[in-house]
Simulated scan of single mutants.
Amino acid sequence: MTLPTSLWQTFALAMDKARPGFAKGPWFTMNAVLELDDPLNVDALATAFTELQRRHDVLRTEIGDGIQLIHEQPTAALEVVDEVTTHVEVPLHAPVRLRLADNRLGLHLHHMESDPVTLWAALSDLASTYTAVLQGETLPPPAAQYADYSTAEAEHVLRTREPAATWWQEHLLDAKACPQPSTIGGAAFAFRDDLLSATEVDRVEQLTKEHRSTTLVTLLAALVDGMSPYLGPGDSVVFSTLFGKRDRPAWQNVLGPCIVPSLLAVPRDAELSAVREAVVGCSRYARFPRSEQPIDPRTPFFEYVPQQWPPGFTFGTVKATVIAAAGPKDTGLADTLAIRVRPATDGVLTGHFSGDGTDWTEPLVQQVRDRFRSYLLE
């Protein structure tokens, strides 16, 4: 069975053409490691993993040139290993791996076929399936498959193409976008940094509530303020981003990347209310094909990822606790600038900054980071 690729998959394929090996490569993954308080039944786990793949078509899907190819049979088997690590290679033709080593269990999904929600939903279903295998029971089928989502997404694109094109024309094409800093050159970089303490995060959340806004909007406003002195003249700061689109009940727990690549055209020197309106509009019309939006290849990427770690899972009588989770491994194929901000489990707000050293050099990004903090805490 074949289907056209979803908006996310089409975008990822385009990214790979620009940076060969980035999205099609085996390190473009979503990963989680669990600690088990007792040994698992290996045979039952192997059976449950096979059944998990049978239950969810996306775990048997291979991405080709513009198509999703759904294999009839599972393409992966449980691996019993000496050690479970956070990152492992996942081939594009077999998008899932499950690895067991003593009291550690690792699930690894190719990002072409998954997003963070998929990672946790797959682990939850694996735990339920394992329990059902032990008890000799059969689980009801999933409420939806990713094919249902991607088909509905394509229909939505056709239905809303005209108003979406009009909106993007007004807010992106007709806007006076700020050019990036002049190319000055520098070394590629990638670093992580704590941006706010847990106490400072609480203060920012209070600020957000006072303005009846969201954390994403507040952080984005701070980032625009931090970048503004280094940009050229213009009224709008443009970012690349991703929006989650689990906007129907059926999509809440479906396995598969229910995310849409989009642009964020944010007013420069704007109050939080104006930034909020811009984010709402960009999200509403995000399902407009990215290929039809003229994009400067130097457009920075920004993403805020809320803390989504679940408290744990139960495999029969065995309790499993999440001890590590991570997205794609940094392979050095950097964007011009990418900023990912997320809260850690201890409440600290962390940032991951990477770039190829052109336009936005590491010293310049360090200055943006300092202004970002000042905006939020002044």
Rank of each mutant, 00 (worst) to 15 (best):
R54T: 02
S262M: 03
V84T: 09
D247I: 09
L255F: 06
A222K: 00
Q9D: 09
V279F: 06
D37N: 15
R373H: 14
R246M: 03
T314F: 13
S240A: 11
D174G: 06
A324T: 13
V322H: 06
F189W: 07
S240G: 14
V238M: 02
A325Q: 11
G281Y: 00
D43M: 12
C282K: 01
H93N: 05
N31T: 00
E292H: 04
D102V: 12
D37K: 07
R19C: 09
F372V: 02
K176E: 11
R192M: 10
G234R: 14
P257T: 03
Q252M: 12
F372T: 00
L100I: 08
A144M: 10
G21P: 11
F28C: 08
Y304K: 01
N253G: 09
D82P: 06
T118C: 13
Q53P: 05
L98K: 02
D174M: 11
S228R: 14
V368P: 04
L216I: 10
L216V: 08
R104P: 08
V279E: 04
L207Q: 15
M227I: 06
E62C: 06
S182H: 10
L92T: 06
D359T: 11
Q135E: 15
G234L: 08
G351V: 03
R340K: 13
F302T: 05
F28G: 01
S236R: 14
P261H: 13
L69D: 12
E200N: 04
R248I: 10
R369D: 05
F243H: 05
L105G: 05
R298G: 02
A175P: 03
R99C: 14
A274G: 05
F372Y: 11
L40K: 00
L272D: 08
L105Y: 03
T166E: 10
P289L: 05
R60M: 01
P300E: 04
A101M: 12
R246I: 03
P74W: 07
Q53E: 07
A250P: 05
G256N: 09
V224T: 14
